[in-house]
Write a protein that binds this DNA or RNA. Sequence first.
DNA 1: TCATTACATTACTGTATCGACATTCAGTGA
DNA 2: TCACTGAATGTCGATACAGTAATGTAATGA
Lengths: 111, 111
Amino acid sequence: MDDLLTTPKLLELVAERFKVLSEPTRLQILSTLREGEHTVSELVDATGCGQANVSKHLQILHSAGFVVRRREGLYVHYRLEGDEVFQLCDIMCGVLTDEARAREAILGGEG
Amino acid sequence: MDDLLTTPKLLELVAERFKVLSEPTRLQILSTLREGEHTVSELVDATGCGQANVSKHLQILHSAGFVVRRREGLYVHYRLEGDEVFQLCDIMCGVLTDEARAREAILGGEG
DNA sequence: TCATTACATTACTGTATCGACATTCAGTGA
DNA sequence: TCACTGAATGTCGATACAGTAATGTAATGA
């Protein structure tokens, strides 16, 4: 953990991965996949986005190594590669909670 | 951890925070701040970016609650709010390492 | 008060990305 | 081969963001 973010190259790689997680639709896809494998059609339903867009988001998630593909006839099933994503979201939610608490303490409830 | 990413509102908030971390320059700033408090000028030197640019990045980091400001005369000192950022980067680097390993295993060293 | 320094803010430009639409690709079955 | 379905890809308009230059603001000292 000492050599984290020391080289420009690594900075870019890490930033790139964070960018993948910086879109609500992609987070929603990941959240849906947490229940288990899903087809593209199912993810289209879950997200309410168009098929083409979901497919593109899945490409991005796949390139970043967050999801895995599996073809079965006409359908393509996606599933999570690991649960690191939710470790990340867990920490991030902690940050959000801390912030909310701090805001409440300062503003007294309404911001 | 069960109610993570369940509401559209929360999805957006989390995505927003990830977006803050999705820029190499901001990660570099955070990395520099890990050594301790630094002034804007020092961060300008460290990053090699323009002063206005660094200042804007610091605003974004501050709004997201990742850094804290402290004025001292003409200088403004910034420091990390917590170390969650590096927990996040640590996990992300783990993902990257796994990926790199997988690529090596498949391609035999060159991608 | 005025000049200087450190930082913040604004306006502007080029680039990247999301979402929507159309098209193409891939697999199945008749 | 053809028609059909699920998924991937290409294009386009709107929007957002990084970077830069110019300007504004805050603190110091003469």
